[in-house]
Simulated scan of single mutants.
Amino acid sequence: MVCGGTGAVGRHVVRVAGGRGHDVVVLSRSAGVDLAGGPDAALDAALAGADAVVDVLGTPTLSARGSVAFFTATTGRLLAAEHRVGVPHHVALSIVGIDGIDAAYYAGKLAQERLVASAAVPHTVVRAAQFHEFAGQIVSRASLGPVTLAPRTLTRPVAAAEVAEHLVGVAEAGPVGRAPDLVGPADDTLAGMIRRLSAHDRAGRRVVEVRLPGRYGAGLASGALRGGPGAVRGRLTFDDWLGSAARVA
C-alpha cells in the first residue's frame, strides 16, 4: 500500500514495488479513501490485508502550524486504521538533518516522526536528503518571469527514483524503527542545481540566492541537510540525473 503514490517519490515506489512482483495499491481519494476526513470503514477496508504501508504523503505549505496539522491528521488516522486491521509494517519517509530545525515544513515532519515512533504499529522511519526534483519544484513555486529566488541551501541531493528503491527495500526487510539515512553522492547548493537545470533546459533563467530568516533559513544554510557520515549514498549525481530516464520516468 502506498500513500502519496502519484507524487515525486510515490510514483517511483509504485513502479519499483510492482517491478519486484508486489501487488501495489495506491491509497487515494480517487479510489474512495480520503485521509483528510473520509469514513474510517473505507480506510480500514482499503488497508485490510496489506503487508506494509509506505507513506510518502506531502504538503506544499511552509507554515509550521499547517505542516504539523497536516501530518498529525493524516498520519494519526493512518496509524489508527493500521492498528485496527493489523498492518504489520508502517514505513514513513522523512528528511535528513532536521532535528535542530523544528520550524516551517520540518516541524510537521518531526511531529510525524514522533507519532510514528509512539504508535503501536511496527514501523520504520526512513530519512532522505532533498530530491534532485526539488530544483524544478522551486522554479515553479518561487519564480517571477525568468527570475527564480533560491533559498540558500547546502544539501546532498538524491534522485527520487533511488529514494523509492531504498523505501521498497526497507518495506521488504521488516520494521526496524529507524533505517539508515539516504543521501546523494555529492554536496551541492539549491541555487547551483537550479542554474544547471536552467542551462540544461536552455531556459535562460536568472537565479538569485537568498538567505531565509529564522530557524528555517538558518537550518537550510547550515549544512545539516547533507546528512551524517553513516548515511547510505545514492549513485546518481544531479548532473547525470538531468539527462537520465530517472528524470522523466
Rank of each mutant, 00 (worst) to 15 (best):
T148N: 03
G38Y: 03
A161H: 13
L144T: 12
V210I: 15
T61Q: 02
V33N: 00
P185T: 03
R114A: 15
F134K: 00
G145L: 04
G108M: 04
A117K: 07
T75A: 08
A164C: 13
D201N: 11
G219R: 05
V68H: 02
A50N: 01
G217P: 02
A129F: 10
A171W: 12
S244I: 08
A50W: 01
L190M: 13
E209W: 02
V9L: 03
V163S: 03
L220D: 05
D23A: 15
G214D: 15
H83D: 15
V207L: 05
V125H: 06
A161Y: 13
Y216S: 07
G214E: 14
L27M: 11
V210T: 07
R226C: 14
H166S: 06
V14W: 06
P157H: 13
R211Q: 12
V168G: 06
P39Q: 06
R156G: 07
G100D: 14
I98K: 04
G76T: 06
P88W: 05
P175W: 10
G223P: 09
V163E: 03
R215N: 08
V53Y: 09
R206I: 05
S222G: 12
Q130H: 15
K109N: 06
A142N: 10
A107N: 01
A8M: 14
D188Y: 11
P122R: 09
G58Q: 11
E133N: 08
S140Q: 14
G169H: 04
A111V: 01
L35C: 09
F134V: 14
A203S: 13
H12E: 15
T189H: 05
I194E: 02
G204Q: 00
V208Y: 01
Q112D: 12
L110K: 07
V13E: 04
A159S: 15
A103D: 15
D187R: 14
H123D: 03
R15A: 15
L35K: 09
G145T: 02
Q130M: 12
E172C: 04
I194W: 01
G230E: 11
A179E: 06
H83V: 00
M193V: 10
L212I: 01
G214P: 08
A119I: 00
A221E: 04
A50Q: 11
G177F: 05
S94I: 01
A246S: 14
K109P: 03
A186G: 08
V24P: 00
R205G: 00
V13Q: 03
K109M: 14
L43E: 01
T75F: 02
A249T: 09
